[in-house]
Design a protein around this nucleic acid. Structure first.
Lengths: 165, 165
DNA sequence: CAGTATCCTGTCCGATACTG
DNA sequence: CAGTATCGGACAGGATACTG
Protein backbone atom coordinates (compact mmCIF):
# COMPACT_ATOMS: atom_id res chain seq x y z
CA UNK A 1 0.00 0.00 0.00
CA UNK A 2 3.07 2.13 -0.08
CA UNK A 3 1.73 3.42 -3.35
CA UNK A 4 -0.82 5.68 -1.77
CA UNK A 5 0.91 6.49 1.47
CA UNK A 6 1.27 10.22 1.59
CA UNK A 7 4.33 12.17 2.68
CA UNK A 8 3.01 12.97 6.13
CA UNK A 9 2.65 9.28 6.80
CA UNK A 10 6.25 9.23 7.78
CA UNK A 11 5.26 11.34 10.71
CA UNK A 12 1.80 10.41 11.87
CA UNK A 13 0.97 6.87 13.01
CA UNK A 14 -2.71 7.58 12.51
CA UNK A 15 -2.22 8.39 8.86
CA UNK A 16 -0.09 5.34 8.38
CA UNK A 17 -2.69 3.12 9.98
CA UNK A 18 -5.38 4.67 7.83
CA UNK A 19 -3.34 4.00 4.73
CA UNK A 20 -3.63 0.31 5.56
CA UNK A 21 -7.17 -0.03 6.82
CA UNK A 22 -8.76 3.22 5.68
CA UNK A 23 -10.50 1.69 2.75
CA UNK A 24 -13.88 0.20 3.07
CA UNK A 25 -13.33 -2.91 1.01
CA UNK A 26 -10.01 -3.62 2.60
CA UNK A 27 -11.61 -4.00 6.01
CA UNK A 28 -14.29 -6.28 4.64
CA UNK A 29 -11.75 -8.47 2.89
CA UNK A 30 -9.76 -8.63 6.09
CA UNK A 31 -12.86 -9.62 7.96
CA UNK A 32 -13.37 -12.48 5.55
CA UNK A 33 -9.76 -13.51 6.04
CA UNK A 34 -10.13 -13.60 9.80
CA UNK A 35 -13.18 -15.77 9.31
CA UNK A 36 -11.06 -18.25 7.44
CA UNK A 37 -11.95 -17.45 3.87
CA UNK A 38 -9.05 -17.54 1.42
CA UNK A 39 -10.32 -17.58 -2.15
CA UNK A 40 -11.20 -15.04 -4.76
CA UNK A 41 -14.73 -16.24 -5.35
CA UNK A 42 -15.45 -16.43 -1.63
CA UNK A 43 -14.50 -12.81 -1.18
CA UNK A 44 -16.52 -11.87 -4.22
CA UNK A 45 -19.63 -13.66 -3.02
CA UNK A 46 -19.38 -12.55 0.61
CA UNK A 47 -18.54 -8.94 0.04
CA UNK A 48 -20.27 -8.28 -3.23
CA UNK A 49 -17.72 -6.06 -4.91
CA UNK A 50 -16.78 -6.17 -8.56
CA UNK A 51 -14.08 -8.58 -9.63
CA UNK A 52 -11.86 -5.83 -10.95
CA UNK A 53 -11.97 -3.98 -7.65
CA UNK A 54 -11.34 -7.19 -5.77
CA UNK A 55 -8.30 -7.85 -7.93
CA UNK A 56 -6.99 -4.37 -7.20
CA UNK A 57 -7.60 -4.62 -3.46
CA UNK A 58 -5.99 -8.04 -3.18
CA UNK A 59 -2.98 -6.79 -5.11
CA UNK A 60 -2.60 -3.91 -2.71
CA UNK A 61 -2.95 -6.16 0.31
CA UNK A 62 -0.30 -8.53 -1.04
CA UNK A 63 2.05 -5.67 -1.88
CA UNK A 64 1.69 -4.18 1.56
CA UNK A 65 2.46 -7.51 3.21
CA UNK A 66 -0.95 -8.09 4.76
CA UNK A 67 -1.73 -11.17 2.65
CA UNK A 68 0.38 -13.70 0.79
CA UNK A 69 -0.71 -15.28 -2.46
CA UNK A 70 0.00 -19.00 -2.51
CA UNK A 71 -0.78 -21.74 -5.00
CA UNK A 72 -2.99 -24.41 -3.48
CA UNK A 73 -3.14 -26.62 -6.56
CA UNK A 74 -1.31 -27.16 -9.83
CA UNK A 75 -2.78 -27.70 -13.27
CA UNK A 76 -4.49 -25.41 -13.43
CA UNK A 77 -2.59 -23.39 -10.89
CA UNK A 78 -4.91 -21.80 -8.35
CA UNK A 79 -4.07 -19.32 -5.68
CA UNK A 80 -5.37 -18.60 -2.23
CA UNK A 81 -4.79 -15.54 -0.07
CA UNK A 82 -3.50 -16.08 3.43
CA UNK A 83 -2.97 -13.65 6.27
CA UNK A 84 0.61 -12.94 7.23
CA UNK A 85 1.57 -12.30 10.85
CA UNK A 86 1.55 -8.66 9.92
CA UNK A 87 -1.97 -9.03 8.60
CA UNK A 88 -3.08 -10.78 11.76
CA UNK A 89 -1.78 -7.82 13.76
CA UNK A 90 -4.63 -5.79 12.31
CA UNK A 91 -7.24 -7.85 14.08
CA UNK A 92 -7.56 -5.67 17.20
CA UNK A 93 -8.43 -2.75 14.95
CA UNK A 94 -11.18 -4.70 13.30
CA UNK A 95 -12.43 -5.92 16.67
CA UNK A 96 -12.47 -2.38 18.06
CA UNK A 97 -14.43 -1.08 15.09
CA UNK A 98 -17.09 -3.75 15.39
CA UNK A 99 -17.24 -3.33 19.18
CA UNK A 100 -17.77 0.39 18.81
CA UNK A 101 -20.82 -0.13 16.66
CA UNK A 102 -22.21 -2.98 18.71
CA UNK A 103 -21.96 -0.89 21.86
CA UNK A 104 -24.58 1.44 20.35
CA UNK A 105 -26.97 -1.39 19.69
CA UNK A 106 -29.12 -3.32 22.10
CA UNK A 107 -27.70 -6.83 22.48
CA UNK A 108 -30.63 -8.22 20.52
CA UNK A 109 -29.96 -5.92 17.60
CA UNK A 110 -26.43 -7.10 16.89
CA UNK A 111 -25.93 -8.96 13.66
CA UNK A 112 -22.32 -9.92 14.24
CA UNK A 113 -20.72 -10.45 17.61
CA UNK A 114 -17.44 -11.57 19.06
CA UNK A 115 -17.67 -14.71 21.17
CA UNK A 116 -15.39 -17.00 23.07
CA UNK A 117 -15.46 -20.07 20.83
CA UNK A 118 -14.97 -22.37 23.82
CA UNK A 119 -17.74 -21.08 26.05
CA UNK A 120 -20.00 -19.18 23.65
CA UNK A 121 -19.88 -16.13 25.88
CA UNK A 122 -20.20 -12.81 24.05
CA UNK A 123 -17.19 -10.54 24.35
CA UNK A 124 -17.50 -6.76 24.54
CA UNK A 125 -13.90 -5.75 23.98
CA UNK A 126 -12.37 -2.61 25.43
CA UNK A 127 -9.13 -0.77 24.81
CA UNK A 128 -7.06 -0.51 27.98
CA UNK A 129 -3.69 0.41 29.38
CA UNK A 130 -2.32 -3.08 30.02
CA UNK A 131 -0.31 -1.93 33.02
CA UNK A 132 -3.22 -0.67 35.09
CA UNK A 133 -6.23 -1.93 33.18
CA UNK A 134 -7.61 1.59 32.87
CA UNK A 135 -9.76 2.10 29.77
CA UNK A 136 -8.06 4.17 27.08
CA UNK A 137 -11.06 6.50 27.07
CA UNK A 138 -9.85 7.93 30.40
CA UNK A 139 -8.99 11.59 29.82
CA UNK A 140 -5.73 11.17 31.71
CA UNK A 141 -4.37 9.52 28.57
CA UNK A 142 -3.38 12.08 25.97
CA UNK A 143 -1.43 12.11 22.76
CA UNK A 144 1.86 13.90 22.79
CA UNK A 145 4.94 14.24 20.61
CA UNK A 146 7.18 11.18 20.64
CA UNK A 147 10.97 11.10 20.36
CA UNK A 148 10.85 10.98 16.56
CA UNK A 149 8.55 13.97 16.15
CA UNK A 150 9.66 16.23 13.33
CA UNK A 151 9.37 19.98 13.18
CA UNK A 152 5.80 20.00 12.05
CA UNK A 153 4.83 17.66 14.84
CA UNK A 154 6.63 19.78 17.40
CA UNK A 155 4.73 22.79 16.18
CA UNK A 156 1.59 20.91 17.13
CA UNK A 157 2.72 19.19 20.27
CA UNK A 158 5.26 21.53 21.73
CA UNK A 159 4.02 22.76 25.09
CA UNK A 160 3.92 26.32 23.81
CA UNK A 161 1.40 25.72 21.06
CA UNK A 162 -0.99 22.93 21.93
CA UNK A 163 -4.19 24.40 23.34
CA UNK A 164 -5.71 21.35 24.97
CA UNK A 165 -4.59 18.19 26.69
CA UNK B 1 -22.38 10.45 7.15
CA UNK B 2 -25.59 8.67 6.54
CA UNK B 3 -25.31 9.96 3.00
CA UNK B 4 -22.84 7.34 1.98
CA UNK B 5 -23.83 4.50 4.22
CA UNK B 6 -24.55 1.60 1.97
CA UNK B 7 -27.42 -0.87 2.23
CA UNK B 8 -25.40 -3.62 3.88
CA UNK B 9 -24.52 -1.22 6.68
CA UNK B 10 -27.73 -2.15 8.33
CA UNK B 11 -26.28 -5.56 8.82
CA UNK B 12 -22.56 -5.28 9.35
CA UNK B 13 -21.14 -3.34 12.31
CA UNK B 14 -17.78 -3.16 10.57
CA UNK B 15 -19.26 -1.39 7.58
CA UNK B 16 -21.14 0.98 9.81
CA UNK B 17 -18.02 1.83 11.75
CA UNK B 18 -16.11 2.37 8.54
CA UNK B 19 -18.79 4.73 7.31
CA UNK B 20 -17.95 6.94 10.28
CA UNK B 21 -14.19 6.71 10.49
CA UNK B 22 -13.26 5.24 7.13
CA UNK B 23 -12.14 8.48 5.64
CA UNK B 24 -8.63 9.70 5.99
CA UNK B 25 -9.42 13.33 6.73
CA UNK B 26 -12.14 12.45 9.17
CA UNK B 27 -9.70 10.63 11.41
CA UNK B 28 -7.24 13.48 11.30
CA UNK B 29 -9.91 16.03 12.17
CA UNK B 30 -11.01 13.82 15.03
CA UNK B 31 -7.46 13.61 16.22
CA UNK B 32 -7.29 17.38 16.29
CA UNK B 33 -10.53 17.48 18.23
CA UNK B 34 -9.23 15.07 20.84
CA UNK B 35 -6.19 17.29 21.16
CA UNK B 36 -8.45 20.18 22.04
CA UNK B 37 -8.56 22.06 18.76
CA UNK B 38 -11.95 23.44 17.83
CA UNK B 39 -11.62 26.00 15.04
CA UNK B 40 -11.69 25.93 11.29
CA UNK B 41 -8.32 27.55 10.79
CA UNK B 42 -6.67 25.29 13.35
CA UNK B 43 -7.84 22.22 11.49
CA UNK B 44 -6.76 23.75 8.23
CA UNK B 45 -3.27 24.55 9.48
CA UNK B 46 -2.71 21.29 11.34
CA UNK B 47 -4.04 18.91 8.76
CA UNK B 48 -3.27 20.78 5.57
CA UNK B 49 -6.36 20.00 3.58
CA UNK B 50 -8.18 22.40 1.31
CA UNK B 51 -10.80 24.66 2.85
CA UNK B 52 -13.54 23.30 0.65
CA UNK B 53 -12.80 19.74 1.71
CA UNK B 54 -12.62 20.80 5.33
CA UNK B 55 -16.01 22.45 5.03
CA UNK B 56 -17.45 19.27 3.57
CA UNK B 57 -15.90 17.01 6.20
CA UNK B 58 -17.03 19.19 9.08
CA UNK B 59 -20.51 19.26 7.67
CA UNK B 60 -20.57 15.49 7.52
CA UNK B 61 -19.25 15.18 11.05
CA UNK B 62 -21.90 17.56 12.34
CA UNK B 63 -24.67 15.79 10.44
CA UNK B 64 -23.59 12.43 11.77
CA UNK B 65 -23.60 13.71 15.33
CA UNK B 66 -19.87 13.45 15.95
CA UNK B 67 -19.35 17.20 16.31
CA UNK B 68 -21.59 20.12 17.22
CA UNK B 69 -21.20 23.57 15.73
CA UNK B 70 -21.49 26.29 18.34
CA UNK B 71 -21.08 30.06 18.20
CA UNK B 72 -18.28 31.22 20.46
CA UNK B 73 -18.69 34.93 19.73
CA UNK B 74 -21.20 37.35 18.26
CA UNK B 75 -20.54 40.22 15.87
CA UNK B 76 -19.20 38.75 13.77
CA UNK B 77 -20.64 35.40 14.70
CA UNK B 78 -17.95 32.72 14.82
CA UNK B 79 -18.35 29.02 15.30
CA UNK B 80 -16.32 26.31 16.89
CA UNK B 81 -16.63 22.55 16.53
CA UNK B 82 -16.94 20.50 19.68
CA UNK B 83 -17.00 16.77 20.20
CA UNK B 84 -20.26 15.25 21.31
CA UNK B 85 -20.36 12.27 23.66
CA UNK B 86 -20.94 10.20 20.58
CA UNK B 87 -17.83 11.69 19.01
CA UNK B 88 -15.81 10.98 22.11
CA UNK B 89 -16.87 7.35 21.89
CA UNK B 90 -14.69 7.08 18.81
CA UNK B 91 -11.53 7.68 20.77
CA UNK B 92 -10.66 4.03 21.42
CA UNK B 93 -10.68 3.44 17.69
CA UNK B 94 -8.23 6.24 17.13
CA UNK B 95 -6.07 5.02 20.00
CA UNK B 96 -6.05 1.49 18.61
CA UNK B 97 -5.02 2.69 15.17
CA UNK B 98 -2.11 4.72 16.49
CA UNK B 99 -1.06 1.92 18.84
CA UNK B 100 -1.02 -0.55 15.97
CA UNK B 101 1.43 1.57 14.03
CA UNK B 102 3.57 2.46 17.03
CA UNK B 103 3.93 -1.22 17.90
CA UNK B 104 5.82 -1.68 14.63
CA UNK B 105 8.25 1.08 15.44
CA UNK B 106 11.12 1.11 17.89
CA UNK B 107 10.18 3.33 20.84
CA UNK B 108 12.66 5.95 19.66
CA UNK B 109 11.03 6.12 16.22
CA UNK B 110 7.58 7.11 17.40
CA UNK B 111 6.47 10.59 16.50
CA UNK B 112 3.23 10.56 18.44
CA UNK B 113 2.59 8.57 21.56
CA UNK B 114 -0.10 8.12 24.16
CA UNK B 115 0.96 9.06 27.67
CA UNK B 116 -0.51 9.28 31.11
CA UNK B 117 -0.70 13.04 31.54
CA UNK B 118 -0.20 12.74 35.28
CA UNK B 119 2.89 10.56 35.31
CA UNK B 120 4.28 10.97 31.79
CA UNK B 121 4.42 7.20 31.37
CA UNK B 122 3.93 5.98 27.80
CA UNK B 123 0.88 3.81 27.26
CA UNK B 124 0.86 0.92 24.80
CA UNK B 125 -2.85 0.18 24.66
CA UNK B 126 -4.27 -3.26 23.98
CA UNK B 127 -7.73 -4.53 23.15
CA UNK B 128 -8.95 -7.03 25.72
CA UNK B 129 -11.92 -8.98 26.96
CA UNK B 130 -12.74 -6.93 30.06
CA UNK B 131 -14.04 -9.98 31.91
CA UNK B 132 -10.84 -12.01 31.81
CA UNK B 133 -8.30 -9.50 30.55
CA UNK B 134 -7.39 -11.78 27.66
CA UNK B 135 -6.16 -9.88 24.58
CA UNK B 136 -8.65 -9.81 21.74
CA UNK B 137 -6.00 -11.24 19.43
CA UNK B 138 -6.46 -14.61 21.13
CA UNK B 139 -7.79 -17.01 18.50
CA UNK B 140 -10.41 -18.29 20.93
CA UNK B 141 -12.35 -15.12 20.16
CA UNK B 142 -14.21 -15.40 16.89
CA UNK B 143 -16.90 -13.47 15.10
CA UNK B 144 -20.23 -15.15 14.75
CA UNK B 145 -23.77 -14.25 13.76
CA UNK B 146 -25.61 -12.23 16.37
CA UNK B 147 -29.33 -12.35 17.19
CA UNK B 148 -30.13 -9.74 14.54
CA UNK B 149 -28.34 -11.46 11.70
CA UNK B 150 -30.35 -11.45 8.50
CA UNK B 151 -30.44 -14.13 5.86
CA UNK B 152 -27.30 -13.05 4.15
CA UNK B 153 -25.43 -13.05 7.43
CA UNK B 154 -26.70 -16.49 8.29
CA UNK B 155 -25.47 -17.76 4.98
CA UNK B 156 -22.04 -16.65 6.06
CA UNK B 157 -22.12 -17.59 9.69
CA UNK B 158 -24.37 -20.61 9.78
CA UNK B 159 -22.43 -23.62 10.98
CA UNK B 160 -22.92 -25.42 7.67
CA UNK B 161 -21.18 -22.83 5.52
CA UNK B 162 -18.41 -21.09 7.40
CA UNK B 163 -15.10 -22.75 6.64
CA UNK B 164 -13.01 -21.37 9.45
CA UNK B 165 -13.44 -20.23 13.02
C1' DC C 1 -11.35 34.86 10.33
C1' DA C 2 -14.45 31.42 8.53
C1' DG C 3 -15.91 29.98 5.20
C1' DT C 4 -18.37 29.52 -0.22
C1' DA C 5 -18.00 28.78 -5.23
C1' DT C 6 -15.96 26.98 -9.27
C1' DC C 7 -12.79 24.41 -12.07
C1' DC C 8 -10.16 20.51 -12.91
C1' DT C 9 -7.86 16.16 -12.37
C1' DG C 10 -7.45 11.60 -10.52
C1' DT C 11 -9.38 7.72 -8.56
C1' DC C 12 -13.19 4.68 -6.92
C1' DC C 13 -16.13 1.48 -8.39
C1' DG C 14 -19.91 -1.11 -10.86
C1' DA C 15 -21.01 -3.16 -15.28
C1' DT C 16 -19.80 -5.79 -18.89
C1' DA C 17 -17.15 -8.66 -21.70
C1' DC C 18 -13.42 -11.73 -22.33
C1' DT C 19 -9.62 -15.58 -21.16
C1' DG C 20 -7.14 -20.10 -19.87
C1' DC D 1 -12.60 -21.02 -11.25
C1' DA D 2 -9.73 -16.96 -11.01
C1' DG D 3 -9.02 -13.57 -12.79
C1' DT D 4 -7.90 -9.38 -16.90
C1' DA D 5 -9.49 -5.47 -19.93
C1' DT D 6 -12.18 -1.67 -20.84
C1' DC D 7 -15.79 1.69 -20.33
C1' DG D 8 -18.14 5.30 -18.06
C1' DG D 9 -20.30 7.79 -14.16
C1' DA D 10 -19.70 9.61 -9.59
C1' DC D 11 -17.06 11.61 -6.30
C1' DA D 12 -12.62 12.86 -3.77
C1' DG D 13 -9.84 16.45 -3.31
C1' DG D 14 -6.26 20.31 -4.70
C1' DA D 15 -6.01 25.06 -6.53
C1' DT D 16 -7.77 29.31 -6.92
C1' DA D 17 -10.76 33.09 -6.38
C1' DC D 18 -14.21 35.42 -3.86
C1' DT D 19 -17.16 37.14 0.47
C1' DG D 20 -18.69 39.48 4.98
Amino acid sequence: MAAHIRPEDRECPLSTAMSYVGEWWTMLILHDCFDGYTRFDQFEANIGLSSSMLTARLKTLVNSGVLVKQPYQERPVRYEYLLTDFGRSLRPILVTLAAWRNAQLAPGDRSMILVDAETGREIEPVVVDPVTGTPASDPRFVFTAGPAAGDQMLSRYGKDSAPGT
